[in-house]
Design a binder for these strands. Structure first.
Length: 293
DNA sequence: CCGCGGGCCTGAGAGC
DNA sequence: TGCTCTCAGGCCCGCG
């Protein structure tokens, strides 16, 4: 499922029911995620309060009163589901047909405010880990991660710098979490189309200053920020399994300009091209060969 | 160090 | 209906 907009949508769903509440009981029903849940997983959570739920790239980070951070990654198919809202939430809001526990749920959080939150991950590429907050920045999974694309630290200058000397394609570079955090296959394709840049272009050429300084990098940064903002506003994209935590579908998939649209006309104004599918580093890429240079 | 390809998993959908 | 095949939004690891 999830790239930055989907993870952010999940964060926004979980925050109101989990922040300020304690874990009264944690069921580690199935430990078989990408990395097995530690044996003391439930014990380390129970009794602690969730101070806040943040996000870094595609990771959800729950700050706990114990001093630990609960790191959660949804892999390809992980999803959170608010089975029952806490006392402060309006009844009925979560009375969706999916509002029940499944035997396949990996983890179930029982919160002190009455909320019930489940995590389910069919493909098991996701995981949860606990780490002391003081060690978070130095954690191997966080340490090398690039800047948040919607933050001020992400701009044309740094992107050009990060891509300098890269022989790989622009598509592969933008998919690299070390260069910028949170983009995946869909939003890389969409951002490149918005920027009219070819996914096949060598990443290093983004720093080409032959025209205006950082012109390409500027346009690309704008494309990335714009598509992420639009997608977050739409509640993410629901292709297969991503739903919002209340069971509702995101609807950004209706606004895809290129992703999974092979053969369809290019939506760029005045462009007569049609969308093409190619494979780069083993993944599908969708782009318009006419207006993306 | 870099870039690529394989592998990890299950489930949905297409085609026969 | 049922089988087989392909593909999927992520990321780690080993190889050259």
């Amino acid at each position: 499922m999830p790239e930055l907009p989907e993870v952010e949508t999940v964060r926004r769903g979980l925050a109101p029911v989990m922040e300020g509440a304690r874990f009264s009981r944690v069921e580690a029903r199935r430990g078989d995620l990408r990395w097995p849940l530690p044996k003391d997983f439930a014990k380390r959570l129970e009794g602690t309060r969730v101070e806040g739920i943040g996000r870094r790239g595609k990771y959800l980070l729950a700050d706990l009163s114990s001093g630990d951070v609960l790191m959660m990654h949804l892999g390809m198919s992980g999803s959170f589901h608010i089975v029952r809202a806490g006392e402060k939430e309006s009844p009925g809001k979560f009375h969706h047909e999916r509002s029940k526990l499944s035997v396949h749920d990996h983890v179930v959080f029982h919160m002190s405010n009455g909320a019930l939150v489940s995590y389910n991950d069919p493909r098991r590429f996701g995981f949860m880990k606990l780490t002391p907050r003081s060690e978070l920045d130095a954690h191997p999974l966080m340490k090398a991660m690039g800047p948040e694309p919607l933050g001020n630290a992400f701009g044309a200058e740094m992107l050009a710098q990060a891509c300098a000397g890269k022989k790989t394609s622009l598509k592969a570079a933008l998919s690299d979490q070390k260069i910028v955090a949170g983009l995946g296959n869909i939003y890389v394709c969409e951002a490149l189309h918005r920027a009219h840049l070819s996914p096949k272009r060598r990443a290093s050429t983004i720093a080409d200053r032959s025209a205006k300084p950082n012109e390409r990098a500027n346009v690309l940064v704008d494309g990335i920020k714009a598509v992420l903002k639009d997608a977050i506003e739409a509640g993410g994209s629901s292709l297969r399994d991503h739903r919002q935590t209340d069971g509702n579908l995101g609807y950004f998939q209706h606004n895809f300009r290129v992703y999974d649209r092979a053969g369809k006309p290019c939506p760029t104004r005045g462009c007569k091209g049609s969308i093409k599918r190619i494979v780069q580093t083993g993944r599908s890429t969708f782009y318009c060969p006419v207006c993306q240079k």
